[in-house]
């Protein structure tokens, strides 16, 4: 084995950063056992990263030391149940018997009279109301009829829109790209439909992680090494589960979804990348 080539391949850096696969990790560890110079190289890489990390030092808030002290006073895991005080249920004294007196009878009579009075008032109000309701129902029915006519026009429009989308999806030149979710967007699905002939694109998304207030997802295309915003997504799933038209950028080769502030910059914050995928 060409040890020098192996050492300069970048595999050791991937190993130290935990980015090597399980197989690669086993191989690096085996080779490090066999070759001390490899072990030394790994140690130097670690040292370089440690030194870089140290340059990021920031004095912690003063109260943090106290918090740590308190935390160290207790065991690493505390049994919350055992330390919880027992609460006994309240109970009546057993030896006192309940006796019905005049005071109780007066109270009962007052309650019954109040109930009867309320019932009579409700009945009177109900009868006078019924006539008014019957008159207004007629007016409402007329309004409903005109609403239904308007809705029919909307349905016809939606149908035309749907047929157009269906035609786009069925086109032989429309390519479907399923974006790969990063670990922070497990279970999320985003599909891009890209048609370079028609220069049109659509997207459909589902189960993106919940958005904090003031944030939104932004879909970017990478075209000629530039990031171009294609669409903003303010919901975790496409509205009505439908496909939605997005901007088309000629020469796009891959896509990235990041979480950005609503009035975010024109460049993606890649540390908040949720999904990515490629046309190739």
């Amino acid at each position: 084995m060409d040890l020098k080539a192996y050492m300069t391949s970048g595999m050791l850096e991937l190993y130290v950063l935990g980015l090597a696969s399980e197989k690669e990790t086993r191989e690096v560890e085996r080779l490090a056992e066999e070759h001390p110079e490899l072990k030394k190289e790994i140690s130097t890489i670690r040292k370089a990263l440690d030194e870089y990390a140290k340059l990021h030092g920031v004095q912690p808030p003063e109260e943090l030391r106290e918090k740590l002290e308190k935390s160290l006073d207790g065991p690493p895991t505390q049994a919350a149940v055992s330390s919880r005080p027992m609460v006994k249920p309240a109970h009546r004294p057993r030896n006192k018997k309940f006796q019905l007196g005049w005071k109780h009878l007066f109270a009962l009579a007052a309650v019954l009279m109040t109930i009867v009075a309320i019932g009579m008032a409700v009945l009177a109000f109900d009868y006078s109301d019924r006539l008014a309701v019957a008159t207004s129902t007629n007016v409402e029915l007329k309004e409903d009829l005109s609403k239904v006519s308007a809705e029919l026009v909307e349905v016809k429009k939606a149908n035309t829109n749907l047929q157009e989308k269906l035609g786009f999806l069925a086109s032989i030149n429309t390519r479907q790209v399923r974006l790969n979710a990063t670990r922070r967007a497990k279970g999320a699905t985003v599909l891009i439909y890209w048609n370079t002939d028609q220069e049109r694109a659509f997207a459909q998304w589902d189960q993106l992680p919940e958005l904090p207030e003031g944030m939104q997802y932004r879909l970017w295309a990478i075209a000629r090494r530039n990031f171009e915003p294609l669409s903003d997504m303010q919901s975790v799933s496409s509205p009505a589960g439908d496909i939605h038209q997005i901007a088309f950028v000629p020469g796009a080769s891959s896509f990235v979804i990041t979480m950005e502030k609503a009035d975010g910059p024109d460049y993606p914050n890649l540390s908040r990348m949720y999904l990515q995928g490629s046309l190739n």
């Binding site: 391949s9 970048g10 050791l12 850096e13 991937l14 980015l19 990235v256 890649l270």
Partner: peptide, 19 residues
């Protein structure tokens, strides 16, 4: 690699350069 549109497997060599 997906985010920066880099060829597959090129992360290692670039990390090497950085380190």
């Amino acid at each position: 690699e997906g985010a920066l549109n880099l060829p597959d497997g090129s992360t290692g060599t670039r990390l090497r350069r950085a380190v």
